[in-house]
Computed example of a mutant assay.
Amino acid sequence: MQKDQLFTRRRALLAGAAALGAAGTAGLILADSGEEAARTSVAPVAGPQARQALGPSAFRLQPLTGYGPPRAAPHRLKVRDEPILRVSGTGRRMVLTFDDGPNPLYTPHILDTLAEHGVRAMFFVCGEMAVENKELLARMADEGHVVGNHTWTHPLLTALDRGEIRSEMERTSDVIEDAYGERPQWFRAPYGAWNRAAFQLGADMGMEPMAWTVDTTDWEEPGTSTIVDRVESGAAPGVVVLSHDAGGDRSQTVRAIREWLPYLLDSGYHLTVPRRRPV
C-alpha cells in the first residue's frame, strides 16, 4: 500500500470514528482521588525545563535488544474499562503526545524544538512507519522521550477480530523494542476507538491505555494559528495534548509547536512524561 493511499484511508475513517472515539473517552478523568494503581502508573516525571539542548545519549536506554538478558514477561496490569485521559499529581503538569509517526519530514523538526527547550514528550508510533525510520526511535530514546504503541497500520480496531488486533499490537511492540531499546508500556487506539479486546490485549502485553484531554485537530490542517490557540486555551494541570507528526502534511504542526511550547513554559507549565515501570 502506498503511503499516500494510507493517509487518504485514515482521513476517510476519521469522520466515522471521531464520534466513537469521543464517546469512548469523554469524561474519563483520573483525579488524585482515584485508585492507587492508577496514580502510580501515570505519576509524571518532570522533564528538564532549562532552555538548552539535551546532551547526546543523555537518556539512552540500555541495554539494547540483543545485548541484554532474555526478554522478561510483560508486567501484569489490571484490565481497564476506560483509557487514561489525564495525569495525576500536583502542580502545573502537562503531557505532550504525538501520533502516527515517526515521519522523516516532520518528526525531526518536532524533536529539534523539544530539545531546544529541554522538554520530553510521548510518541505513539505506527509500526509500518517505525520500521522504516528506526533511527528516529533511537533518537527518541537518546533524548528521553517515551514511545508508545499505536498499532502497525492504524486500523479501526472495532472493525477487527481479536487475532488481528493482537497482530497489530505485537508487531509494533517488536519493532519498538528493536529500535528504541525496550518494549512500550503505553498504548493508544487509532481514532480513539477502544473496545474490550484492545484493553485486554494491551494489559496482557504490559501496556496502559492512554487517550487525551486536548485534541489540537491538527489532522484537519486548520491553520497554524488555530492549532496554537487550541493548545494555549486548553492548557490546564493534568492535561494530555494530542498532536500528530505523521499521517499527512504536518508542516502546520511543526510551526505551531514553535509558538505554543515557549508559551506553555513561560506560563509556568512543567511538561512531563509518565514514569517507566521496572522491566
Rank of each mutant, 00 (worst) to 15 (best):
R230V: 00
E135K: 09
P70I: 08
A12K: 14
D266L: 08
L201Y: 02
M122I: 11
M129F: 11
V119Q: 00
L96N: 00
A203H: 10
R39K: 14
L114N: 01
A53H: 09
R86T: 15
V45E: 13
A246T: 06
R93D: 10
R255P: 01
Q252K: 06
S88C: 13
Q52G: 00
R39I: 09
L137V: 08
A46K: 11
V147C: 02
G16D: 13
T113E: 15
A159G: 07
D245A: 06
R183E: 06
G202L: 02
L14F: 12
V79K: 07
E208C: 09
Q185V: 06
I84L: 13
Q185G: 08
M1I: 10
S41P: 00
M94K: 06
S243Q: 15
T253I: 04
D204T: 09
A26L: 14
Q2S: 15
Q49W: 02
I176H: 01
P83D: 05
G181D: 04
G27Q: 08
R188G: 02
F124R: 01
Y191T: 03
G234V: 06
S267T: 09
R183V: 05
A58V: 07
D4A: 15
P274K: 02
R171C: 05
G268Y: 05
G68E: 04
G127T: 01
A198Y: 01
W194H: 04
V42P: 00
E36G: 05
R139P: 02
A159W: 12
R250I: 07
P222Q: 11
S173N: 11
V95G: 00
A37H: 12
V254W: 02
S41W: 12
L61M: 09
L105E: 13
N149C: 07
Y269H: 05
F98S: 00
A193Y: 04
F187H: 04
A159K: 13
L20R: 14
I165V: 14
G248F: 03
V240M: 03
A22Y: 11
G16R: 14
V79Q: 08
D32V: 06
R80K: 10
D32R: 10
V241Q: 01
G248Q: 02
S88V: 13
R139W: 08
E220R: 14
A246E: 01
D249I: 03
M140T: 07
N103V: 03
I165A: 03
N133Y: 07
N149Q: 05
F123E: 03
L20F: 09
R39V: 02
A58Q: 15
A26S: 11
L156S: 11
T253R: 02
W219K: 00
A203L: 09
D99Q: 07
G91T: 08
Q49S: 15
R10W: 12
V228Q: 01
T97I: 02
A18T: 12
R92L: 13
E208A: 12
M94T: 11
I29M: 10
D32Q: 09
L242M: 10
T107C: 05
S233Y: 05
W260K: 00
A211T: 01
A138R: 14
E208L: 15
I165K: 01
L13F: 09
D112Y: 04
E82R: 14
L265A: 10
Y180A: 02
V146L: 10
L201V: 10
R10F: 12
D174R: 11
R275H: 12
I29F: 12
A256R: 03
R166L: 13
V146N: 00
P278N: 11
P209F: 02
R86W: 09
R76T: 11
R60M: 10
P102C: 09
R275K: 15
Y180W: 11
G66E: 06
G248V: 06
